[in-house]
Nucleic acid binder design. Structure first.
Lengths: 342, 342
DNA sequence: GATTTTCTTGTAAACGCTTCCAAATTTTAT
DNA sequence: ATAAAATTTGGAAGCGTTTACAAGAAAATC
């Protein structure tokens, strides 16, 4: 019967109702130890009855913290980001921090701009999932020791808190898997080469080739940028080669789907004619047919871990920056098989 | 060379630098007409040089509005929500409103709780994408005339701003398409029956059957709740029938994928043995193989339109609630064909 | 029982901005 | 040139909290 809860109820109203001063109410809100149990209960009851909800803005202004953390992402298009946000959200829901979502739509100026503003008190901390080398504002952020964590960004030169995955290892494992299946001509579609993770995956691919004494063929490496059309274009080009690859490794699942389309588009079949392997293990990977064999990146976990790191940073401001690499994992499904002997 | 931009710069600093009062600075920030052009420029320059960024919290507190809108969603799992958010974000990025994301993880109590809090000044408006009948708090919201828009919720009894899709029509069209292909035994997997949209789709299915004088067979209607396993379970059950369906219409794409799995699981093929049609047209629908024929819901557009409605509501508080239904559209891909004659 | 010491509570001063009202300045009309 | 009107500016009050700091009450000490 909280009938009185009509409009803005302030701590003053609560204080009046409970017969205490507003300072005491504030203490109750903030779990201050120095409140007599009995008084606390009275205040709590008054809050209940009045339907009091603390004003976030006022708390922020007075307290000097915003009680929210910002998540900056390039966009929401791919399942990739969704998974990460899921992890972030899961972790954040254990606290009372709000999640403010900013999408930059892949414009660098917007990124820089957002970061500048956000760091100035709009949020207490920042989680950055950015599709480009974040060099510019990282410096600023570090220098004013603003708490932030980079997600999936190791490889950028600077030394700052970040969580990523073992991209090199993943690239190596995927390639090795194909080699052990018997493939010798393995195409590779790179990601956006500005990114450390893309470079690492390529390096992994190369190392595996080297380990197994397979020559690296330039025509079998196509430079993409993580979008589906890149996979299509890259695979189409390779399939036109006089001696086409029997397997193609795409730097992410979305491009792998483009590869599959290209293969089918030429009347060939996956995996019988061309094996395809991806990277990321986005939810779609399991759903498409043939189900995509890929390197699993613990996306949701990356979100979680990054959030934990940030929360930690928030509590212990001058803790050292550490970078975490979560293990990737080969997930065998149906898009790869032994090459046809002919 | 904005060297002085080290820490918190307030309007007072700017005022001092520009040689005006802070009131004038505030006016400049808020595009107040009554500022001499020359003064404005001086202030702008000072802001530039100092690297001034207005404190959101303070503006909110003083101005009585939060400059942000809340988006409440059940979770981020399916592409479905992602698409909607994308639309919201696109529209919001044209304003200077922040987007605060709340996920309820499908717990009703959390929803009610959030809504109560949010409506009390944490955000200026609310966009609700909720997976359940929102009856409870709608009343409260309406009564305190708090601006909000429901997304994909028509069918809930109350009269409030909402944008949805023509679910009935979509259900009808999908069924009709299958009938015209020659199917007579068409299975249907329902969505969560608490939701208007699920009911409408089912009604559309029934109407189409009636129109074409095809008897409705209870065993061919399986009650699901929009999750993939429902599709699997429903299809498996139907396929076990002595006289199994030649086509299955799932109330959403995710369940349709479950259906496909079930079909394959029995050694049958899509569409040769069983045609499958979905609803939503989530991004995955085009990526899976066979590509899923489905009813396209303009998800992104729904997000956009809802946001526009909300912005409008924000500007003209007592405008009438109106509900918009965006047209759905049959998207023919590869998961349906004529039934095998036998 | 008087005096410390410890708890508990009240109060004033921010926090950085908006907004209103009044004062100062400029423009226009006479 | 003078009065009236319009434009531009300054400054006070307040938004709902937090956070010292001080004061009052209760408990503990001798």
């Amino acid at each position: 019967m909280e009938k009185e809860s009509n409009f803005k109820v302030t701590i003053i109203d609560v204080a009046a109702k409970a017969g205490v001063s507003f300072g005491t109410v504030s203490r109750v809100i903030n779990d201050d130890v120095h409140v007599k149990k009995e008084t606390r209960e009275r205040v709590l009851k008054a809050m209940q009855e009045l339907g009091f909800v603390a004003n976030r803005q006022a708390r922020s202004l007075a307290g000097g913290k915003s009680n929210s953390i910002g998540v900056l992402v390039p966009d929401l298009g791919t399942g990739y980001i969704g998974e990460i946000i899921r992890g972030i959200d899961a972790e954040l829901s254990l606290t009372d921090l709000d999640l403010i979502l900013y999408t930059t739509h892949r414009t660098a100026s917007k990124e820089a701009n957002y970061v500048a503003n956000l760091a100035r008190g709009m949020v207490d901390g920042l989680l950055l999932v950015l599709p480009r080398s974040p060099a510019d504002f990282i410096g600023t952020l570090t220098q004013q020791s603003f708490p932030f964590v980079l997600i999936d960004h190791q490889g950028s030169s600077q030394d700052c808190p970040a969580v990523g995955a073992t991209n090199w290892q993943g690239g190596y494992n995927a390639t090795e898997y194909l080699i052990k299946l018997g493939h010798q001509r393995i195409g590779f579609i790179t990601g956006w080469m500005d990114l450390g993770c893309a470079l690492d995956r390529l390096d992994g691919y190369r190392s595996a080739l080297r380990t197994y004494h397979i020559p690296e063929i330039p025509e079998l490496i196509y430079q993409g940028s993580f979008f589906q059309p890149d996979g299509f274009a890259g695979a189409s080009a390779m399939l036109n080669l006089p001696n086409p690859p029997t397997a193609i490794f795409a730097s992410n699942d979305v491009m792998a789907m483009g590869v599959m389309d290209a293969v089918r588009n030429r009347g060939l079949r996956v995996p019988d004619d061309v094996s395809v392997i991806g990277f990321d293990d986005i939810p779609q990977a399991a759903m498409i047919r043939p189900a995509l064999t890929t390197i699993g990146q613990p996306l949701e976990k990356m979100g979680r871990v990054a959030t934990q790191m940030l929360l930690d940073l928030l509590r212990h401001p001058n803790k050292d920056a550490n970078r975490i690499e979560l293990p990737t994992q080969l997930i065998v499904r149906d898009s790869c098989c032994e090459p046809r002997m002919n």
